[in-house]
Computed example of a mutant assay.
Amino acid sequence: MDISVVIPLLNEEESLQELYDWIAKVMQSNQFLYEVVFIDDGSTDKSWDIIQELSKKHNEVKAIRFQRNYGKSQALDAGFHVASGNVVITMDADLQDNPEEIPELYNLIIKEDYDLISGWKKKRYDNVITKNIPSKLFNWAARKTSGLQLNDFNCGLKAYKNEVVKAVKVSGEMHRYIPVLAKNEGFTKIGEKIVQHQARKYGVTKFGIDRFVNGFLDLITISFLSKFGKRPMHFFGLWGTLMFISGTTMAFYVGIVKLYRVFNNIPSILVTQNPWFYIALTSMILGTLLFLAGFLGELIIKSNSQQKHYKIKEKQNL
């Protein structure tokens, strides 16, 4: 199969039929063998009913329905798991991503041998204050932290080699950082393509301003994981050891000073009245806790069974 189009969605009943017809028209005009994988992330409108009707009429339509709303990252992870196309295209269901971009994205992966192509919505039709400006700040911080020179990390329209989506594990709210996750897995040929952004035709956005706050927190997480995710002891163990040694050194110093004063009959306060004693004790305790955190992190990694953090309620054509 040439292409798998993976579409996570939440309450997009108005746009689904139009989106599918548009995708099918593009695929058929380019003679692609394709599948469209809808992941219903706990919709409460008629989205699933429409998807069921589409899947009955068209064998290439496949679908997964979550038990409840788990988030876009979990929806993408489920879609990646079942995608079988040589190239996997992700796009949003709100008609703001243009299916006409698919052939060129496909060619960049197949003919130019890119591992991943990220869309860049250079001209946007979103609110400048609530979306455009925060998005620019977010992307600037992401570039500085990750080292990837992409202009639009959060664009839903992306293309991947199939082996890339099988290698990355998307959880939490890490869908913004799939290019970073791919880079961490050794897929280094990552490019960017300017894509057309369209104004929302139906409904309202499902994301508020809090997504940027969460985005920056996730950015810190992904930065840490990229460096120490597979070796937490190198971080926690190092700082734990340094703090424990520092605390031990301070405690040894306090003890030496006390003994010196005792042997030389110099009046002195009790050890427990010396503030350096408590600083030393605190450093030793924190050092021990950090070392244990690193040890537990190593155990968790070794015993991790890649558990999925979502529950599928039903499937169509899968």
Results as ranks from 00 to 15, higher is better:
Asp113Ser: 15
Thr90Glu: 08
Gly42Lys: 02
Trp120Tyr: 12
Ile102Gln: 15
His58Asn: 15
Leu54His: 00
Lys57Gly: 05
Glu101Gly: 06
Glu101Val: 12
Asp115Trp: 07
Tyr34Arg: 06
Ile89Lys: 12
Gln31Pro: 06
Lys56Ser: 13
Ile109Asp: 03
Asp49Phe: 10
Leu33Pro: 00
Gly119Asn: 02
Leu19Pro: 03
Ile50Trp: 00
Ala83Phe: 02
Gln28Thr: 08
Asn59Ala: 08
Lys122Phe: 13
Lys57Arg: 12
Ile64Pro: 14
Ile109Thr: 06
Leu95Ser: 09
His81Cys: 13
Arg65His: 13
Glu104Phe: 15
Asp77Met: 15
Lys122Ile: 14
Asp45Ser: 08
Trp22Thr: 09
Leu108His: 05
Lys111Cys: 04
Ile110Tyr: 03
Ala78Met: 05
Ala83Leu: 03
Ala83Thr: 00
Tyr34Asn: 02
Asp45Asn: 07
Asn59Gly: 14
Val87Asp: 08
Arg65Met: 11
Phe66Trp: 02
Asp21Ile: 00
Met27Thr: 11
Asp94Val: 04
Asn107Ser: 12
Arg65Ser: 12
Val87Ile: 08
Ile89Thr: 11
Met27Arg: 04
Ser29Asp: 11
Asn69Gln: 11
Glu18Thr: 10
Ser84Ala: 08
Ile110Cys: 06
Asp97Gln: 13
Trp22Gly: 04
Val82Ala: 12
Ile23Asn: 05
Met91Phe: 07
Glu18Ile: 04
Gly42Met: 02
Asn86His: 10
Asp94Met: 04
Ile64Ser: 07
Asp113Tyr: 11
Met27Ala: 13
Asp45Tyr: 05
Asp92Pro: 02
Ala24Cys: 09
Gln74Ser: 04
Leu116Glu: 04
Val26Thr: 05
Lys121Ser: 10
Asp94Arg: 00
Glu112Gln: 15
Gln31Gly: 06
Trp22Arg: 15
Asn69Gly: 11
Ser43Gln: 09
Asn30Pro: 01
Ala83Gly: 08
Leu54Ser: 06
Met91Cys: 13
